[in-house]
């Protein structure tokens, strides 16, 4: 087999994938934190129902999400209305559409670890902060967030990695546009289907190595954090 070189197509797929995963992770940390905080502290009887909705993408086939997203992003759905604001007619086949899909798809992977970290912390630190006359906001920023840091780290890493590994949803709503929606997993699929196995091999091996490093690093970091917490 000839030694495959990274084609410009491949390079653009890699860049696009990293961008998508980074933006998705940033958005998820931003909106996932208040959700996780609420899920960890609220005593509302229906909070587990909300937690279940957040967790649904864990078990739903990507085709279910892909189908609903395709309709929702399209011209007769809310996505089409949103796109109309800047003169578009659909959010399907756009990078923005992929971001929306990825945020929903990867949300449980970010919210769950952060919620766990908030819960593990217990009520005590916030109470102590309150007796020291810290405002709830101040206590949140300077007490809760630092204490929950391992949860944020795990959530961010898992959210990023899971978005990189997304395939079914992108295949259904992406339209395979180079530089816009053709992410790594779809590029690999394309290479396999067109029998360009040299390139497929290279990317697939890269993805496997990436996943290995991510999971191994996280396990090591978690162990170290657990030990330093003793």
């Amino acid at each position: 087999m000839p030694v495959p070189v990274l084609s410009s197509e491949t390079v653009s797929a890699i860049r696009l994938t990293v961008e998508l995963a980074a933006i998705t992770t940033a958005i998820l940390l931003f909106i996932g934190t208040p959700i996780a905080w609420w899920l960890a502290r609220s005593r509302a009887w229906w909070k587990e129902a909300v937690a279940t909705v957040v967790a649904l993408p864990l078990v739903l086939p990507p085709t279910v999400l892909g189908f609903y997203l395709l309709v929702a992003l399209g011209p007769s759905g809310p996505g089409g209305a949103l796109a109309g604001l800047w003169g578009g007619r659909t959010l399907a086949f756009t990078f923005e559409g992929l971001v929306i899909g990825s945020v929903i798809y990867s949300m449980p992977f970010v919210v769950q670890p952060i919620r766990n970290a908030f819960e593990a912390m217990g009520e005590r630190p916030m109470e102590v902060a309150a007796t020291l006359r810290a405002s709830p906001a101040r206590a949140f920023w300077s007490v809760a967030l630092p204490l929950a840091r391992p949860g944020f780290l795990t959530g961010a890493v898992l959210g990023f990695a899971h978005t990189v590994g997304e395939f079914g949803v992108v295949l259904m709503i992406g339209g395979n546009i180079p530089g816009e929606t053709k992410v790594l997993s779809v590029a690999i699929y394309d290479y396999v289907e067109t029998l360009r196995w040299g390139e497929a091999n290279l990317l697939a091996a890269g993805m496997a190595a990436f996943a290995f490093i991510v999971i191994l690093t996280m396990t090591i970091v978690e162990k170290r954090v657990a030990r330093s917490g003793d």
């Binding site: 395709l70 992003l73 011209p75 007769s76 659909t90 399907a92 086949f93 339209g175």
Partner: peptide, 9 residues
């Protein structure tokens, strides 16, 4: 399907 759903005109 892309055309039928109107996602592509």
């Amino acid at each position: 399907q892309f055309v039928q759903t109107g996602n592509a005109e």
